[in-house]
Design a protein around this nucleic acid. Structure first.
Lengths: 154, 154
DNA sequence: TGCCCTATCTTGACTTCATCAAAATAGGGA
DNA sequence: TCCCTATTTTGATGAAGTCAAGATAGGGCA
């Protein structure tokens, strides 16, 4: 189903801003509001930051987008909403990869005791070091305790 | 081992600010920097916000504290660092509960290889509705589609 | 097709969370 | 006890995101 159709289905107006955001995120998942704004402006130079926030919030609330927030950076957005996939963040370079759900579908985890809380979503963020960062670390490293975890995210 | 000892071990000075923060978080886990500041000021009225941030950052970096960021709110801190437990956030009232790791120890999940990324930490945040919110929802509800997920976090 | 209503967008001010820098303070080893 | 420097304080600054009011433009209907 294309975006126009889906927006209609949800009772939303089909605006250029919404289409542009959706189209951009289709190509460039894991984007912050800022990134979305710059990307969208290539095709629609006039969009305001506020509109980007509006669109991201509205579409996330209605389930057309998914949002997650890696530690220490802004919220990121993507159009993959139907599968239960997770995310891995490289602690060195900030790169983000999708991770298929290891345990099957659904919450993917079954917390033994939840104090009576009715779990609906499991948001999982793995942190690690990606292959290329591991290499450059080896190259540089003189025996230090490892890559420093608190670099800015690219 | 008490806090003084542990700080020494890490080569850090034992300051009243650090001890106060640690003591406070022992009693009140899942606290934001703001909450920590007010709490600490009960016993040490002069602490600056900046110091609280310093302490939280330093001790988190050295592994004496753990930090996590539930979607849509400030970073929270706790002293439980050695077990691999997760968190459940009530989408309605914002309450947070600890959740024991269901699958055993360690990363708790095994996407051992993910695009060559070497996973070291799995941060899991469950979102759901806690028992008391479910009750009050039932009480109020006239057949609406359910509790609204985007309320402010208490 | 054209009109009109209102959802959506724009502009601009403002909050919250957090970091940076420089001067003042206070651990703790000698 | 003295002195060095790690920490803390003070004050400015930055990033991410929200709020509110007026302007614009989807799209249902005549």
């Amino acid at each position: 189903m294309d975006h126009t159709e889906r927006l209609h289905e949800l009772g939303l107006r089909v605006t250029r801003q919404r289409l542009a955001v959706l189209r951009f995120l289709e190509t460039t998942p894991h984007s912050s509001a800022d990134t979305v704004a710059s990307g969208v402006r290539d095709e629609l130079p006039e969009v305001s930051m506020q509109s980007v926030y509006n669109v991201l919030n509205d579409l996330t609330a209605l389930g057309m987008l998914r949002r997650f927030t890696p530690p220490g950076s802004a919220a990121l957005h993507e159009t993959r909403v139907d599968d239960n996939h997770h995310h891995a963040v490289c602690m060195t370079c900030g790169r983000i990869e999708d991770v298929e759900c290891a345990v099957g579908h659904a919450p993917c985890l079954s917390p033994s005791d939840t104090h009576g809380m009715n779990i609906q979503i499991a948001d999982v963020v793995y942190q690690g070091v990606c292959a290329s960062c591991r290499e450059s670390a080896h190259a540089t490293e003189g025996g230090a305790s490892g890559a420093q975890p608190r670099e800015s995210v690219a």
